[in-house]
């Protein structure tokens, strides 16, 4: 899309945002391992924040790398 105009792909923007979200959510999940919240959510034992954070990191990292500006030109 718009390669001829040198436009950055939307997937790059998405990748960067997901990467950031991955860092924040994984970081929060790891922090809660050492300092469990006073009011835990249902199924807190699954540590879904950690798994979701890793998923976001992988997705975000993959998209950022693949669609990095200038990488495919």
């Amino acid at each position: 899309m718009h390669e001829q105009k040198g436009m950055i792909s939307i997937w790059f923007f998405i990748g960067v945002l997901l990467l950031f979200y991955g860092v924040v959510i994984l970081g929060q999940g790891l922090y809660e391992l050492s300092s469990p919240p006073a009011k835990p959510v249902v199924l807190a034992s699954l540590h879904i924040g950690i798994w979701w954070g890793i998923l976001l990191l992988v997705l975000g990292g993959g998209y950022t790398r693949h669609f990095f500006p200038g990488r495919n030109r």
């Binding site: 979200y21 924040v24 959510i25 970081g27 929060q28 999940g29 809660e32 919240p37 835990p40 959510v41 249902v42 199924l43 807190a44 879904i48 924040g49 979701w52 954070g53």
Partner: peptide
């Protein structure tokens, strides 16, 4: 969301 999502995930 409130039932399953802690800080960070709730923001998402």
């Amino acid at each position: 969301l409130a039932r399953y999502c802690g800080p960070g995930l709730l923001g998402l």
